[in-house]
């Protein structure tokens, strides 16, 4: 099962978004693991990561991540700010599915 993490400054705003995404994923029988992390928690995160989505406010981490994860399969992206601001779980889930080459809902 793919593992996706959403990262923001303190994991507060993403956690709400993640719970919405999980719910929609479950409703559509999509097997996927999604977690919200604070930026500081990412370093000590030991599981395999397939996709890292960044909150727009931590967009600056992008360069570092590309460097840190260059030897892995992990992909990176920034969450669209409007979807983020409106906590649009479905749209962000679709962004995830697209990036993982899966069928969108």
């Amino acid at each position: 099962m793919e593992n996706v993490v959403l990262v923001c400054t303190a994991g507060m705003s993403t956690s709400l978004l993640v719970s919405k995404m999980k719910k929609i994923a479950a409703e559509n029988n999509i097997q996927i693991n999604i977690e919200a992390l604070a930026q500081s928690e990412l370093k000590n995160y030991s599981k395999k990561i397939d996709l890292i989505l960044l909150g727009p406010q931590v967009k600056y981490l992008l360069n570092n991540l590309e460097r840190d994860y260059q030897n892995t399969q992990a992909k990176f992206a920034v969450i669209d700010s409007i979807q983020y601001g409106t906590l649009n779980g479905k749209a962000v889930l679709n962004q995830v599915l697209t990036l993982l080459d899966k069928k969108v809902i």
């Binding site: 923001c8 709400l16 406010q57 931590v58 967009k59 983020y84």
Partner: peptide, 24 residues
Amino acid sequence: DVKIGILMHIIFLIEKLLQGEKGK
């Protein structure tokens, strides 16, 4: 888009503080 991100962060920060949660 970064502005919106920061905005969301601050809003949820205040909300959590009001709910009595501690930050990182």
